[in-house]
């Protein structure tokens, strides 16, 4: 049975597309047939994170409007034969998505893929509604700061209102991923802890991702960090992928382990 998973957030720039790109690779590497669909219409981004921007010919709107067929628009990942990508269009027309067509597209994708990952636009406007309408699950990304958590709470509050599943009396499964945790700050009492965020949002956790400089260079290269076996954030994304597929994986220990000289002085004088 295939599932539709929407990755969303209230605030923009919290790592939604990065998370999606990484768990898409992660689940494909676990042997699932995965398609990543970019629903952030007008602001195409997922292509660069996956390093596939040069291969785009058609986009998701072309498919929905019948200008091409699905196989023409789907782009296969460079490294994984299990992973496919469907790019967003770059039109300025916000009303180009249509619920019925979204439904038809997802029904078609369900026949071919195990996992359909939808990259939703940030916020609560039009595009979000379409991205969440047919989701079985929603992954809400938040960083541990006040504006991100506040906006996440708002989005969580309206997911069920926009969901077809909820209209039928079922519930969209919602999980939280906390991104860009800085263990030193948490330890110093200058960053919300994982527990704080979960207490406030009142949803189950499915991943914690440490802040990691390597993510920036991997984004520059168009190679998701999950393929870097040495990066801690890559490890975090591998764990999330396995948890989504139903495995129980222990959470990374993000306490500050090494006391570096710099850290020591910082601790003393700041």
């Amino acid at each position: 049975m295939s599932i539709v998973i929407t990755v969303t957030s209230g605030k923009g720039g919290v790592g939604k597309s990065t998370t999606l790109a990484n768990i898409a690779v992660g689940m494909a590497d676990e042997g699932k047939k995965v398609v990543a669909v970019d629903f952030d219409i007008g602001l195409r981004n997922l292509d660069m994170l996956l390093g596939l921007e040069n291969r785009i010919v058609y986009n998701v709107i072309d498919v929905m409007e019948g200008k091409c067929n699905l196989t023409q628009a789907l782009i296969n990942d460079k490294h994984s034969k299990n992973l496919f990508f469907l790019p967003a269009s770059q039109t300025n027309d916000k009303n180009v998505l249509n619920k019925q067509k979204v439904k038809e597209l997802l029904e078609t994708l369900k026949k071919e893929f195990d996992i359909i990952l939808i990259d939703s636009p940030a916020g609560i406007e039009g595009g979000f509604e379409h991205a969440i309408a047919y989701a079985d699950r929603a992954l809400i990304i938040s960083t541990p700061d006040v504006s991100s958590v506040r906006d996440a709470d708002r989005v969580i509050g309206i997911i069920d209102a926009k969901s077809e599943k909820a209209h039928k009396g079922e519930e969209v499964e919602k999980y939280v991923i906390i991104n860009r945790i800085k263990p030193e700050l948490v330890e110093r009492g200058d960053m919300l802890t994982t527990e704080d965020v979960l207490n406030i949002l009142a949803l189950p956790l499915i991943g914690i991702v440490p802040d990691c400089e390597k993510v920036i260079s991997s984004t520059n290269m168009g190679e998701p960090i999950i393929r870097d076996l040495k990066a801690e954030s890559g490890e975090a994304y591998r764990h999330i992928s396995r948890r989504i597929l139903g495995e129980e994986v222990e959470y990374l220990d993000l306490s500050v382990k090494k006391v570096s000289l710099k850290g020591f002085f910082h601790e003393f004088f700041c």
Partner: peptide
């Protein structure tokens, strides 16, 4: 004084308690 994270936590709780009430009817 108390840590900035605990201030953040308390401020968020107050703000969200208010916002959730006004957002209770998403339909």
């Amino acid at each position: 004084k108390e840590s900035s994270a605990s201030v953040a936590r308390d401020r968020l709780k107050v703000v969200l308690a208010h916002e959730r009430a006004s957002n209770a009817l998403p339909y």
